[in-house]
Write a protein that binds this DNA or RNA. Structure first.
Lengths: 110, 110
DNA sequence: AAACTGTCTAGACAAGCATCGAAACAGTCC
DNA sequence: GGACTGTTTCGATGCTTGTCTAGACAGTTT
């Protein structure tokens, strides 16, 4: 996963290995539904949100939402925690920040 | 395309329209080859690079590289300019910055 | 333990996508 | 205009992915 990485790519070309790893993260948010799910989770006051609340915002079935959440989880962008019958999701800011940094303008080179 | 957008998604959930637009950009860089191509173009001294130079760095055929460049171009991440038989590519920093900003940590809220 | 609610996983299917070789297009040189 | 180089587009193919339903799993209540 995204264990070590990366200067803005405006400064230095990515290696094949870095690109492979980063692309996995970008591909995860390269779907509108998943991007919206991540935004709902990441913007949540209190830092976490129950999957039962997420389902309501989409016209997709529960299994489909669950599948999308799994993709985000496997990309390291969110974590999940079961409490009783309920499952709560949190965003992982560090992973988002890494993806963000790679595309950042060169002006942030300092 | 990415005409108007977007606070960090940690601050506010994305609308379906915003997500649709942004996801298009993220999907474009969600492929390792395309991510490497973008990094080669964006990090180039002089700001532009000839496609003939790009092809050498990959074990793919010319048409495949051309296809990938087209995906990046349609996502607005690069522009192309033909000069004689040669075609030169440039990165579009503003579009990269927009994608970067969306995933930026909330700490940049100021 | 059985019945219930909530959630995830598996499998099928249709749509989308990365790759190649062939063909078309763009420009240069003779 | 024809031959050439460089590049892009087209179409076929095999692989990947988004979506659904069915079923399995996790936890709670009776």
């Amino acid at each position: 996963m995204l264990t070590t990485c990366c200067l803005p790519l405006t400064q230095e070309p990515l290696t094949a290995g870095q690109a492979e790893s980063l692309a996995h993260g970008f591909k995860a948010v390269g779907d509108p539904i998943r991007l919206r799910l991540l935004s709902l989770i990441a913007s949540q006051d209190g830092g976490e949100v129950c999957v039962c609340e997420l389902n309501d915002g989409f016209e997709l079935t529960g299994p489909t939402i669950s599948h999308h959440l799994k993709v985000l989880r496997e990309a390291g962008l969110i974590t999940s925690e079961r409490r009783g019958t309920w499952v709560y999701y949190r965003a992982v800011p560090e992973v988002m920040a890494r993806l963000s940094a790679v595309l950042a303008p060169a002006a942030e080179r300092v």
